[in-house]
């Protein structure tokens, strides 16, 4: 079974040379730490920066330079700043190659819910609805089950949707799965996790063909 860093490490392998990448808050943010350093990648943050670098050294924080998680950041050579409309132009116009975000629920038809629990938690969708409706290549990073132990990979989402039919790939602490017209296609198992374990934790339809290899991280 993987921890959050393990999930981020596995997703980092999906980041290819020349990609512009938008990382969501939470596990997705960790992905930047594990991208190979022999490829050229630029991270976009929807509040208006392309070419995000690491956190600043102590004493060098600048209140005017933050990421979408409101964390102080730095920029790398080649970086640029822009307004919010331009930022979402990059996203809606599909100039961003890969979007990685978290989810509360994903359905076997690619629907995603990650912004609202009616009557309990309403923080808002931020940029998530724009991102999932626009990007061609969306990877969801999440734990396979919620805190109560219930599956987050469902036949149909129960929470208010963020987007419909948009998720293409899911990386969890247990597995890598792809969304297909027949359901979740199991591609890889996390180290030490059996197909049986994954089946038990997946409420939605799961397709298993042949030997499902263990992840190489």
């Amino acid at each position: 079974m993987l921890d959050k860093n393990g999930i981020a490490k596995r997703i980092a392998k999906e980041v290819k040379d020349g990609y512009y990448v938008n990382l969501g808050i939470g596990i997705p943010t960790l992905v930047a730490n594990f991208v190979r350093n022999d490829i050229d990648v630029e991270f976009q943050s929807e509040n208006g920066v392309l070419g995000m670098g690491p956190f600043p050294l102590e004493g060098e924080e600048d209140a005017d330079i933050i990421n979408a998680g409101k964390q102080t950041i730095t920029t790398l050579p080649g970086a640029s700043f822009f307004d919010s409309a331009t930022s979402f132009g990059m996203i809606r116009g599909q100039h961003v190659d890969l979007t990685i975000l978290g989810a509360m629920e994903v359905a076997e038809n690619g629907d995603i819910a990650n912004w609202k629990i009616p009557g309990k938690m309403v923080k808002g969708m931020g940029g998530a609805m724009d991102l999932v409706a626009s990007a061609e290549n969306i990877i969801v990073a999440m734990m396979h089950t919620n805190r109560a132990g219930h599956s987050k990979l469902l036949k149909r989402c129960t929470l208010p949707l963020t987007g419909v039919g948009c998720v293409t790939k899911i990386v969890t602490n247990l597995a890598v799965l792809e969304v297909t017209s027949e359901g979740f296609l199991l591609k890889e198992r996390a180290p030490g996790v059996s197909i049986e374990d994954i089946k038990k934790a997946t409420e939605g339809t799961m397709i298993i063909t042949g030997d499902v290899p263990e992840m190489v991280i």
Partner: peptide, 28 residues
């Protein structure tokens, strides 16, 4: 949605009464 919010401002700035966006389709 954040991109819609930005564009609703820019539309007002630029004299567009409305625009089509994929964000939020199929949601509340």
């Amino acid at each position: 949605p954040q991109g819609t919010l930005a564009e609703k401002c820019r539309a007002a700035q630029s004299g567009f009464p409305a625009f089509f966006t994929p964000a939020g389709y199929g949601t509340e």
